[in-house]
Amino acid sequence: MTTSRTDRTMTYFVLAVFSVFSLVPLLGVLSSAFGKSGQGAGGGVAWPSDGLHWSNFAKAWTQGHFSTYLGNSAVVAVTVVVVAAVLATMAAYAFGVMRFPGSTALFYLFVLGLTLPAESFVIPLYFDLRALNLTDSLWGMILPQTAQSLAFGVFWMRTYFRNSVGSVIEAARIDGVRSWGILWRVLVPMGRPAITTMLVVTFMWTWNEFLLALVMISDDAHRTVPLGLAFFQGAHSSDNALLSAACVLIALPVVIVYVILQRSFIAGMLSGAVKE
C-alpha cells in the first residue's frame, strides 16, 4: 500500500481534534461537578480547586431531590423497557415468521411510528390522559414511551426473526414445540444480541426523554431526571457545581451501560433510519 506518513499523521490529527471537541463539554461538566459549590456564578466552568468536592453530589441528591427523580426515572425506564420488549418481541415474531393477510400493512403501520415525533401526538394525549387523571403520574410517561419503543422494537426484532434460521424453527416444530414455545424457548435465547440492542436503546431513549415529561408532569414528586434538571437549572443557575453534579448523576447510568455495551448501542441507534 502506498500509505504515506503524512496521510497517517493527518488522519490521526483529525481524529484527535474531533475527539477532543466531543469530550470537552462533557469533561467540563465532570470537572465542575467536583468544583467548589457557588463557583462559576456566571454559568462558566467551575474548577475543582482545593480538592474534589464530593459534597456536591450529596447536595444534589438531597436538596435537589434527585433521589426522587432518579427513582421515578428508574421506574419509568424499567417498565417501558420490559413491557415494550415483551410486546414488541411477540409482534415481531408474528411479522417475521408467520404469514397472514394484512401482515405487511400492519407492519408498516408500526414502522410509521418511527417517523412520528412526540410533537405529533403529545397535545391531544395530554388532554386525554388528564381526563383519565393520568397526568402527574408516572403512567403519563410510561404509556406514550412504551408505544414509541414498540415502533422501534417491532421493526428491529422483525429483522432478527426474518434472519433467524428457518431450519431451527423447523427442527423445533418437528420436536412438537408449538409457536409459543418456539418463540420463548428457542428464538429468544438465541436472539440475545438483538434483544440486548433493543433493551439498551429503548432504555436510553426513555431515560433521556424530556418533552413528554415536561408536558405530562407538573408536580415535583413525579419528575424524572431530565425534567428535574431543567427545573433545578432554573432554581440554581448561579451554582454551576451543583448543577453539574446533577448532570453527572443523570448521565452516569446511560454512559456506564454505553461503555459496557457500546456495540449494541451504536447498532441500534444507526438502524433508526428505515429503508423502504
Binding site: V29, G40, N208, P226
Partner: peptide, 19 residues
Amino acid sequence: LFLPQVVAMVVSGVAWRAI
C-alpha cells in the same frame, strides 16, 4: 465520538451553556 449521542440532550444543553 459517539458519546454525545448517548448523553441526554438536557445535559448537553447545560454542558454547552457553561462553555
